[in-house]
Amino acid sequence: MSFIHAEYPVASGDYTRAGEASADIKRRLKQLGVSSMVLRRVSVASYEVELNLVIHSLGGQLILDVDQDGVRLTSEDVGPGIPDISLAMREGWSTANEEARSLGFGAGMGLPNMKRNADDFEIESEIGKGTRISMRFALT
């Protein structure tokens, strides 16, 4: 049984709306009574994964599911894919462009932040197809 299922389309390059999906996810989980510790970890991960869709992808969506196993966040996009995942996971590695860097993105800390905050973290990517990230957070 799923207590919550929500899908948030995220447009490539739309910096002004970036973070809105994460804000809504946080609001919903708070209403559900999720503890502030878990809320904080989900917020960090959802913000990082949402911003990666804006900055690096050609567009995609963020999906929230909550059931008795906890919170699941899934990010799917339509490309361009990540050529070397172990390199992308490394702290400090970034291919962010000048515009993104001038806004304070591109520290190469997003994926490491997600991995650190999620209880389970899975990433798969195919060049020309897209990237899929799935994270789970236990509720206790």
């Binding site: 970036a18 973070g19 913000y47 911003l51 304070g104 591109g106 997003g110 932040n113 650190r116």
Partner: peptide, 27 residues
């Protein structure tokens, strides 16, 4: 750098930054 701030952010924090765009508020 917003991802650094994301990693360190805490409830009740006072954050000093020269960034001024909307994502500062979101973070």
């Amino acid at each position: 750098l917003l991802s650094w701030v994301m990693a360190h952010g805490e409830e009740g924090m006072a954050w000093v930054t020269v960034q001024t765009h909307m994502n500062v508020v979101a973070v």
